[in-house]
Design a protein around this nucleic acid. Structure first.
Length: 265
DNA sequence: AAGTATCCCAACCGCCGATAG
DNA sequence: TCTATCGGCGGTTGGGATACT
């Protein structure tokens, strides 16, 4: 026979995740890693299906997620990649470390699509909707909207669609604007520092401040705490490596955050 | 201030290829 | 080889937040 079902769906919770649920999931994964999504909710004490846990982790709780709005450079790159790959969001997202396919998809559907239509470019084909109109109108309309260079030329270069294009390593940088905006809007540096200490990088920006105060699971304690569900010794090593990478990732992000705080403060 | 429209995004749905049994 | 599930993906939507009248 085939595999066992993912979940029995009976009594499973749906809808928005609560702080407690997030806490349980993050705590469990930091301690045990990800082996089988189907078993995670049961072992973590969650009334959710594995699929829902996976989605929540990937799109929201992963420590290496980048927060903040997408920069113009990122937006430009999304447009270029979309011209090459179409709606293959996971493929596009792979060029943006710390960004999720869902985030990029949402950004495309809510903003970029609109922006392209405004300047008469079909977001599906990446070609001018009305060729004649665009031969009459000057390119500076497009320039004003900061579109990628290949839209500023008269003809669209078909070679952009070629799959065999060199896979450029993304010149990725944290959105300075986001940090600048935070600081210019009476951003509370003390609170920020405090929340960094409680691993807020893993956490949802929708968390209330009070709730954030109560989150005490640090990455250090996660490494040292007993991991009841890990058995073989060789798995301990790989788990330790995984934990180390998560931890170093969180530390790197923290350093990056502090760098920009100092720079713009 | 209240009602309505629009925007935004987290989460769900359903499909599909890979794979366990 | 076949069947059924898992994991991953893209499309869609519900509802909170914000803007507008």
């Amino acid at each position: 026979m085939g595999r066992q079902p993912c979940c029995d769906r009976v009594g499973l919770k749906r809808g928005p995740w609560t702080i407690e649920e997030d806490h349980k999931l993050v705590h469990f994964i930091l301690n045990n890693g990800i082996q089988c999504w189907r078993t995670i909710p049961k072992l973590a004490g969650l009334q959710r299906c594995g699929k829902s846990c996976r989605l929540r982790w990937i799109n929201y709780l992963r420590p290496d997620l980048k927060r903040g709005a997408l920069s113009e450079a990122e937006e430009d790159q999304i447009i270029e990649l979309h011209a090459r790959f179409g709606n293959r969001w996971s493929k596009i997202a792979s060029h943006f470390p710390g960004r999720t396919d869902n985030e990029i998809k949402n950004h495309w559907n809510t903003r970029i699509k609109k922006k392209l239509k405004q300047v008469g470019i079909d977001p599906l084909t990446h070609k001018p909707i009305d060729q004649e109109k665009y031969q009459q109108e000057p390119d500076d309309t497009i320039m004003e909207l900061n579109l990628p260079n290949h839209y500023k030329t008269e003809t669209y270069d078909k070679s952009n669609e070629a799959e065999n294009c060199t896979e450029n390593a993304t010149d990725f940088s944290v959105s300075n604007n986001a940090y600048h905006n935070m600081l210019s809007e009476n951003f509370d540096v003390d609170l920020w520092n405090k929340s960094c200490k409680t691993m807020s990088n893993c956490y949802s920006p929708t968390l209330s401040l009070e709730a954030e105060e109560s989150i005490k699971f640090s990455t250090v304690s996660a490494v040292t705490e007993s991991s009841s569900n890990i058995a073989p010794a060789e798995e301990q090593d790989s788990l330790q490596q995984w934990m180390d990478s998560i931890f170093s990732c969180a530390v790197n992000q923290l350093e990056e955050d502090l760098f920009f705080l100092r720079k713009y403060n």
